[in-house]
Simulated scan of single mutants.
Amino acid sequence: MTSRVHRPVGTVTRGTTNPNRLRRMDRWIAATHGAELRRAADPVAVDLGYGAAPWTAVELLSRLRTVAPRTRVVGVEIDPARVAAARPYEREGLVFRHGGFEIPVPQRPHLVRAANVLRQYDEDQVAEVWQRLCARLAPASGGSRGGLLVEGTCDEIGRRHVWVALGPEGPRTVTFATRLGSLDRPSDLAERLPKALIHRNVPGEPIHTFLHDFDRAWAAAAPYASYGARQRWIRTVRTLTTTWPVTDGPTRWRQGEVTVEWGAVAPRG
């Protein structure tokens, strides 16, 4: 009788990583999904495709435990050499496993974070990957909305991020996050759009219209720049709320974030 060989699903990424690269994404997850993690009996989070070094998984454990102390983190990498290199960093609540989009953990995770993983894939592959990952999430039940998949892209030092949040049912929201002092205009974030959106930033597509309106509101808020970039951003987002389904409020806006419903910016067709 032959034993089954575990064959990870996916391809090896470049592995680029840096300490604190995902801090903006982590803070958002902790703020918006912390209550779900606290309600879970055994909350498990997966850092999918953490890269050549395990910094992002180590940091994810630390940040999630500030809001949900029982959370465990599993770092998953498709490159076995990266898993071996990460093993010395294992500790209580943190382990590393060889795998890919199949998510090689026995239970359904309450969080899967996949940052800068789909960047090298084709746009027409994204829906299948999303579907596979969402199917692995903890299901909705009772007062819980279920697990969360956070998939997106950021620059090398974490100044600019855009990510999609998905539940077991599919995409929910898109979040734009930036260090405000580095921003000339909101559409600078277009280069960090996730794979599902980056090629849709063309006239006639909702994401293009959104970024155009974002820039126009930013220009109109120029007088607020004398009070600082944060005040200009808050005024800009407040203007956006009159025409776009913004789902968060000033507490998040002050962090240099804005979140909108996925359906408002989803690709046509």
Rank of each mutant, 00 (worst) to 15 (best):
A31W: 10
P203Q: 12
R216W: 06
E77Q: 01
T13S: 15
R254Y: 08
V162C: 14
R7T: 08
A85V: 11
V150H: 02
R235P: 02
E128K: 05
P8L: 04
T243G: 15
P223I: 05
E128Y: 08
R230V: 14
H208N: 12
H33R: 14
G263Y: 01
A138H: 07
T16A: 15
T236W: 02
L211A: 05
G158F: 06
R24N: 01
L183M: 15
L148E: 06
D47K: 01
E36G: 08
A219G: 12
R192Q: 10
A52M: 09
V162R: 07
G263H: 14
A31R: 15
V162S: 10
R82V: 13
P168V: 04
P104C: 07
P43S: 09
M25I: 14
Q131N: 06
W28T: 10
Y227I: 03
R160T: 06
L197K: 12
T153D: 11
A127D: 13
D213W: 13
D26Q: 15
E90M: 08
E257A: 06
G263M: 00
G51P: 13
R91H: 01
R24C: 00
T66H: 11
G228N: 07
R70L: 06
Y227H: 13
G34Q: 10
N18A: 15
A135Q: 10
I198T: 10
D213G: 15
T178R: 04
L211K: 11
Y89L: 12
A52L: 12
R4C: 01
G263F: 00
T32S: 14
R65P: 04
F210I: 00
R24M: 10
A266T: 08
T56P: 08
G34R: 13
T66P: 01
F101W: 09
H161Y: 08
L133R: 00
A31F: 06
A221T: 05
P54F: 06
R27W: 08
R72N: 04
T11D: 09
P88V: 08
A127C: 00
P69T: 07
E156H: 13
P19H: 09
G249L: 02
T178M: 12
C154Y: 00
P54Q: 08
R97P: 04
A57S: 15
R7M: 04
T32D: 10
H199A: 06
H161A: 11
A86C: 13
T2Y: 02
V150I: 09
P109D: 12
D155K: 02
R119C: 05
H6R: 09
H161M: 10
V117R: 03
A115E: 15
E151I: 00
E77V: 00
V74W: 01
R4T: 08
R160P: 01
D213F: 12
A35W: 00
K195M: 12
M1D: 11
T242G: 14
V202Q: 14
H110R: 12
F101V: 00
M25K: 05
T209P: 04
R63W: 11
L193Q: 05
T236G: 04
R14Q: 14
N116E: 13
R159S: 13
R160C: 09
D155I: 09
P104G: 05
